[in-house]
């Protein structure tokens, strides 16, 4: 039927797969989650984006009834995660950061046991296990002990285990961390297909590209708080404009060129340290013509000119004020640059 349409309508009418309000969780003195609000529309892929230790996993664990929030409340399809936990568990599938399958058993045994726990009879459980293994390309490895599984195979088995009951909401905690690009793409395909089949997916990721690629909406989370929320395009727009990159042929002219850029475009500029390019926000494309004329008038020769749309990386940097990469030097260098460039 018009399943998809119905879902979209409901979402507009306020039918939320996830509604979290002011979630707080402290571990000792550390407020891992510090007042998180989330609203995930039914039938969408929702990305929770943040660096390590931002509180993504803790948030997911609270939503998935694995952890009780200190403060705040959350509802899954309208059911309270604390008071109606057992109902919530019937509506969700959880794939954690670390594969939650039984190491000492085979893939088939794992899936059969989970299926039986979910109420399938013995033969039905076996059928279901075979079906899922086939679907996730694990049939050949079905009887092997999990110890010999690669990281990718383990993840796939883990996801398969989450899908036994065909839950309408699936939590994926960093589903592609540690996977090679090919396996990662397979995982993305699977996630897209799940949503096509009517599921809602809430995934966490450290990778901006992943959020960009998959998510309909994104919440950026940092130090246990949601610092930005919206569609990918909204977030990009919130950072503002595209950037103009100017490469100067003769580096002696760099300062003069910068002055011209700042005067004509009437903005602050910065110089990238790696390749000595001038970077300036480009609010009005028309002015670039004036700029180029002025530069030629000053006798400065350009080596290169390019315009770049803001990337999610920049969005993240702008919002959180620090880099996503753990590589601190690179991150601080970049944020410095962005800081000047965007005023």
């Amino acid at each position: 039927m018009s399943n998809n349409q119905g879902k979209k309508l409901l979402a507009v009418n306020g039918d939320w797969a996830v509604e979290a309000c002011g979630l707080v969780k402290s571990f000792g003195t550390n407020r891992a989650v510090d007042g998180v609000d989330l609203k995930v529309p039914t039938g969408s892929i929702y990305g929770v984006l943040g660096p390590n230790g931002a509180g993504k996993t803790t948030t997911i664990r609270m939503l998935a009834t694995l952890l009780r929030a200190d403060e705040g409340s959350a509802r899954i399809f309208g059911y309270d995660v604390v008071k109606e936990a057992q109902i919530v568990r019937q509506l969700i599938g959880v794939t954690g950061q670390y594969a939650s399958v039984d190491e000492s058993l085979s893939a088939t045994e794992n899936l059969v046991i989970f299926s039986q726990l979910l109420g399938l009879g013995r033969s039905a459980a076996k059928r279901k296990a075979a079906e899922l293994l086939e679907e996730f390309g694990l049939t050949e490895a079905a009887k092997r002990p999990l110890k010999n599984f690669s990281g990718g195979m383990r993840r796939r088995l883990d996801l398969a285990a989450s899908l036994i009951a065909q839950p309408p909401l699936i939590f994926l905690d960093e589903p592609t961390t540690g996977l090679d690009p090919r396996t990662r793409n397979q995982m993305w395909e699977t996630i897209r297909r799940l949503v096509k089949e009517g599921s809602t997916v809430l995934l966490t990721t450290q990778y901006l590209q992943e959020a960009d690629e998959l998510a309909d909406r994104i919440a950026v989370i940092d130090h246990g708080r949601v610092v930005a929320e919206g569609t990918v395009n909204e977030l990009k727009a919130s950072v503002g404009t595209s950037s103009l990159y100017l490469g100067i042929k003769n580096l002696q002219d760099l300062q003069a060129a910068r002055q011209i850029v700042e005067r004509v475009l009437n903005v602050g500029s910065s110089v990238s340290t790696e390749d000595g390019k001038i970077i300036a926000p480009m609010a009005d494309a028309d002015r670039v013509t004036d700029l180029l004329i002025a530069i030629r008038g000053a006798g400065i020769q350009l080596a290169e000119l390019s315009v770049q749309k803001p990337t999610l990386d920049e969005v993240f940097l702008t919002i959180t004020g620090h880099g996503v990469q753990e590589d601190a030097s690179k991150a601080s260098d970049k944020s410095q640059k962005e800081g000047v460039g965007r005023g």
Binding site: A85, E135, Q166, P168, G198
Partner: peptide, 16 residues
């Protein structure tokens, strides 16, 4: 999973 669509949350029989 070969079946194309999932039962929406609202159509499920749920018990706490």
């Amino acid at each position: 999973m070969k079946s194309t669509s999932n039962t929406p949350a609202t159509d499920r029989r749920l018990r706490n």
